[in-house]
């Protein structure tokens, strides 16, 4: 016969065991529920991305088809370029209609678009359009069209992918500010990152490419020139992990796409010429 006291302690021991096991089961249930929910959300997000991707590729293909017809007419010998101006105008309008939110939201694209529109108006008003003028407009259109397509694709990706980047601002006087683990949407350019981490002023150069933006000041530190032969400017670099050194930016900051875990630096530095 088991004694009452022993029975009480046995019950207490079983109680502790039961509560511990139940809590463990509860923990795993909670984890399972959470993961299932997350997988569901991720799946939904992927489906949305796939559907958006389909939509934008269809749009891209239609616009590319229209461009191709116009390019064919332009390439055909003995064509009347003045007559081709109207279809080009419609193409430019279509471009604006299809990528309106991108053109409105992204300053560099906005400026590139309005430069193209201005150039178009100038050539159109001139009357007698030469093949050279028309070819230049077509090139401008095509460059912008590709840029818009890439940016829109990046926007679609950014719904599911976020980049982690490190940025550094070196003021050239010993002061260096690091902004590590900065989150940026996929497809962002260095220009967008710089706008996010600092107060900047910049100048847009339509004829400069790739990238049209030159940064004039970062956090009130202004670039300047002393005559034509020397000055101080904001120069950007990216960190090359393989070479283990900083590489000077080969293009304008608005044309350089950020990569995940990338490290970028703006340095205020002296230059002289020759």
């Amino acid at each position: 016969m088991v004694e009452k006291r022993a029975l009480i302690f046995l019950t207490l021991a079983i109680l502790v065991w039961a509560i511990s096991i139940s809590s463990l089961a509860g923990y795993f249930y909670l984890q399972n529920t959470m993961y299932t929910e997350q997988i569901g959300e991720n799946q939904q997000s992927l489906n949305k991305t796939a559907s958006n991707y389909d939509e934008l590729t269809s749009k891209y293909n239609i616009l590319l088809g229209e461009y191709s017809i116009l390019y064919g007419s332009y390439s055909f010998p003995g064509g009347n370029f003045t007559l081709l101006m109207e279809p080009l105008g419609r193409l430019i309008d279509n471009q604006k209609g299809n990528y309106s939110s991108l053109i409105m939201d992204q300053k560099d694209l906005n400026e590139t678009y309005y430069t193209l529109e201005e150039d178009y108006q100038l050539v159109y008003q001139k009357g007698n359009v030469t093949g050279e003028d028309f070819g230049r407009l077509l090139n401008e259109y095509y460059d912008l069209f590709n840029l818009l397509a890439i940016r829109e694709l990046s926007l679609v990706l950014s719904e599911t992918v976020t980049l982690n980047v490190n940025a550094c601002i070196d003021y050239g006087n010993g002061t260096t500010n690091w902004r590590n683990e900065t989150k940026m949407p996929a497809g962002s350019s260095l220009f967008q990152l710089t706008q996010k981490i600092a107060e900047i002023n910049y100048t847009y150069y339509p004829s400069m490419k790739p990238g049209h933006v030159l940064v004039d000041s970062i956090n009130d530190k202004k670039a300047y020139t002393a005559g034509y032969s020397e000055g101080w400017s904001w120069i950007w670099y990216y960190w090359d992990g393989d070479e283990q050194n900083w590489i000077s930016g080969p293009v304008g900051c608005d044309a350089w796409m950020l990569k995940n875990d990338g490290t970028y630096k703006w340095r205020f530095e002296h230059w002289s010429w020759p």
């Binding site: 502790v16 511990s20 809590s23 463990l24 509860g26 923990y27 909670l30």
Partner: peptide, 16 residues
């Protein structure tokens, strides 16, 4: 409450 208790369960088992 549920989250705090559930995520503390491994520590509780060590403690017990």
């Amino acid at each position: 409450m549920l989250t705090a208790i559930a995520y503390g369960v491994f520590f509780s088992i060590i403690h017990i």
